[in-house]
Simulated assay, not measured.
Amino acid sequence: MNEEQRMAEVEKFKNYFSYISRPGADKLLAWLEEAGFFTAPASTKYHGAYAGGLVEHTNYVYRRLVQLADAEDKRQGRTYTEYTVDTIAVAALLHDVCKVDAYKVEKKNQKQKDGSWKEVEVYGYTNSLPLGHGEKSIIQIMRYMQLTEEEMLAIRWHMGAFDSAVKGGSYDMNNAFAGSRLAAMLHIADMMATHLDERTNAHE
């Protein structure tokens, strides 16, 4: 991703973020910018492993969640949407704020195709606030802005079966998905963004 592409993704994010109108949203956005959200990768190597990868991934999740929520409203035959544009934006745009300070550039010797070794810069993972993935996002958001209980559930469990608590045998994710379509849809939107959108539009 070049700088022009990254800035285009930042602009899209800020446009989507404008749907969040609750008190503290402006302070939260200022913190995201200051903390490096718009230059962070989405992961070390799995997806979006480049500067701007996190904001790009987030934008994909937002668009997927909008589509899923709209399709579900139609399936349910709703006259009015189940979730406000504010809630959709909050869940999608803020689910991964826990990653804002999680990746640092490191130098590493890497084997090349010709068999030689070369020192390259890669992202390494660090966690100065080990509270859990979704939990950390919620705590960081609520330093600036309030969340509804359903938004908390969605952000907390957006990792689905990949969440360490689920791997440890917790049934809380199942209960969250059973009680909240938003929680289930955010997880699906996250998976679609990661495994469909980002794979199709992978940057060199």
Results as ranks from 00 to 15, higher is better:
67 Q>A: 15
128 S>Q: 15
68 L>A: 09
19 Y>H: 11
125 Y>P: 00
144 Y>P: 02
193 A>W: 09
17 F>E: 02
123 Y>W: 14
179 G>S: 15
176 A>N: 01
35 A>M: 07
56 E>Q: 13
40 A>T: 07
168 G>N: 13
170 S>H: 05
145 M>S: 08
70 D>L: 12
92 A>H: 07
50 Y>I: 03
185 M>K: 06
171 Y>S: 14
107 K>C: 05
138 I>Y: 04
54 L>Y: 06
92 A>D: 04
65 L>K: 09
96 D>G: 02
151 E>V: 04
192 M>H: 11
59 N>C: 14
78 R>V: 02
40 A>D: 00
126 T>F: 07
53 G>N: 05
76 Q>W: 10
191 M>H: 07
8 A>V: 04
38 F>K: 07
73 D>Y: 09
33 E>R: 08
32 L>D: 00
126 T>V: 15
164 S>G: 00
161 A>N: 11
77 G>E: 06
79 T>Y: 08
94 L>E: 11
58 T>A: 08
127 N>W: 01
111 K>D: 00
87 T>K: 10
73 D>T: 09
88 I>A: 01
5 Q>S: 12
196 L>F: 10
44 T>D: 05
131 L>A: 06
103 Y>Q: 00
128 S>Y: 12
11 E>F: 06
99 K>G: 02
41 P>T: 09
49 A>C: 09
75 R>W: 03
75 R>P: 00
79 T>R: 14
12 K>P: 03
204 E>H: 13
145 M>D: 08
13 F>M: 03
132 G>I: 06
82 E>S: 12
204 E>Q: 12
166 V>D: 05
108 K>N: 02
147 L>N: 08
41 P>V: 10
176 A>M: 05
96 D>I: 00
177 F>V: 02
170 S>F: 03
47 H>Y: 04
40 A>S: 15
62 Y>L: 00
65 L>Q: 06
147 L>E: 10
75 R>H: 05
7 M>D: 10
73 D>K: 11
63 R>H: 10
199 R>A: 11
178 A>D: 14
188 I>T: 14
18 S>W: 02
86 D>M: 06
11 E>N: 11
35 A>I: 01
153 L>C: 04
150 E>F: 09
106 E>A: 06
148 T>L: 01
138 I>A: 05
16 Y>T: 00
84 T>Y: 01
149 E>R: 11
118 K>V: 13
141 I>V: 11
160 G>V: 03
85 V>R: 15
94 L>Y: 11
34 E>R: 14
124 G>P: 02
114 D>K: 08
44 T>R: 07
30 A>D: 09
168 G>P: 01
11 E>G: 02
97 V>Q: 03
16 Y>S: 02
110 Q>E: 15
15 N>A: 12
